[in-house]
Amino acid sequence: MRLLVAHPSPDVYGSDLQLVETVRGLHQAGQRVTVVVPERGPLLPLLEAAGASVEVMAFPVLRKAYLSPIGLVRLAAALMVFWVRAARLWRRVRPSRVLVNTVTIPWWIVVARAARVPVVCHVHEAEDDQPKPVRLALTAPLLLATRVVANSRASRDVLTHTVKVLGRRTTVVYNGVPGPESVVSARNRMPHEALRLVLVGRLSPRKGTDVALEALAEVRRRGIDARLRVCGSVFAGYEWFEQELRSRASDSDLAGNVEFLGYVAEPARELEQADVVLVPSRVEPFGNVAVEALLAERPLIASRVQGLAEIVTDGETGLLVTPGDATDLADAIQRLAADPTLAAELASAGRKDAEERFGAERYREEIAAEVLG
């Protein structure tokens, strides 16, 4: 069987890396997989190493830039070109099944249905903060899909609250995250040593990077010598947010205590160096970084929101805090800084739980069964 997988990005963040695991699962199931992406990037060699062939073909991806009269005209023009390119690719690949790896490229669902080929949409989004017309525009095309896979109950609930009938064809498959080959023991921090905080994720208001900076400022005001390392680049169009973050980090109460590392190819090394990992997202359909922190056996503080609340059991495998609340986040940081025994217990329990629930091999088997079923 030849599968065509449409993916919106050549980057290597959460849903991108999850696609690599999807390809591995499909390849292990004996399928020939072709992945089409709109441009070249660091994801491509990872997909090829996982067993896929890769096609680079420019196609539009739904972004906020299209939500204007001029933007809609640009989208319509891009789609006119897309239909021609997609037809050429289809004739070359001749897939017998299609996987669309997001809700933001619904035209691939239309292409598959027009060719009378089964199509599965893997949903990595949970846009419950968007106006209902936007949610409806993103969700309604899924009615054309043969079946839908959501990466969390939160993602499924957003779909079914928007279009109720989708509940009958949507299955939840939790992401599978490869753990480290061996766990590096956490350091025994001495009283004179700074508390190392790490945040891995795109520089975006959704990821709550600004909340982490304010929480850092608060814990430092309380007399805790803490430092923050931020791993991640900015989404195109959000350069203003990075400027705001850097400006805030240069203020006197934070100056010299925040490092912006940009994109980090191997964030596992940063997690190994962390005393506490922060995932302060305002919106998070799943949260691969949270699982990576648990698998690295590092104490985790995450927002009590969407998929993160499904990953972390508060007080048992990590700490959950109110999204957007810097004081609540600072309280949790202070709690772990003052109680290293609690931090170690949470980290140990978190690793065991993550290995059981979010293992990569379990995911590969489940996602292959859903796509091929």
Rank of each mutant, 00 (worst) to 15 (best):
L4V: 03
V5H: 05
D11F: 14
Y13S: 14
Y13I: 14
D16T: 12
L19A: 09
H27R: 15
Q28W: 07
R32C: 04
V33L: 10
T34G: 00
V35P: 15
V36M: 08
P38G: 01
P38N: 05
E39A: 15
E39R: 15
G51D: 02
V54W: 10
F59W: 05
P60V: 02
L62F: 03
R63S: 03
L67H: 12
V73I: 08
A76V: 11
A78I: 02
L79H: 09
V81R: 15
A87E: 14
R92M: 09
R92N: 03
V98F: 04
L99G: 05
L99D: 00
N101V: 10
T102H: 04
P106C: 14
P106Q: 15
W108K: 09
R113I: 01
R113H: 10
R113L: 09
V119Y: 03
V119I: 00
D129W: 13
K132P: 11
V134Q: 05
A137Y: 11
L138C: 03
L142E: 06
N151I: 12
R153G: 13
D157C: 08
D157T: 13
G167V: 05
Y174K: 08
V177K: 07
P178T: 11
G179W: 00
V184S: 07
R187K: 11
R187V: 07
L195N: 07
R196C: 00
L199A: 11
G201W: 09
P205W: 14
K207D: 00
V211P: 02
V211S: 03
L216Y: 00
V219G: 03
R220L: 01
R221K: 03
R221G: 02
R222C: 06
R222G: 05
R227S: 07
G232S: 09
S233Q: 11
R246T: 05
D251G: 13
V258H: 12
E259K: 08
L261A: 10
A268D: 14
E272H: 13
D275S: 01
V277W: 07
V279Y: 11
E284K: 00
N288L: 02
E292A: 00
E292L: 04
A293D: 11
A309I: 06
T313F: 04
G318Y: 08
D325C: 01
D325L: 07
A330L: 07
A332R: 09
L336R: 10
A337S: 09
A338R: 15
A338N: 11
A338L: 10
D339V: 01
T341V: 15
L342M: 13
D353P: 02
D353I: 04
A354F: 00
E361K: 04
Y363Q: 06
E366W: 03
I367M: 05
E370D: 09
V371E: 07
G373F: 06
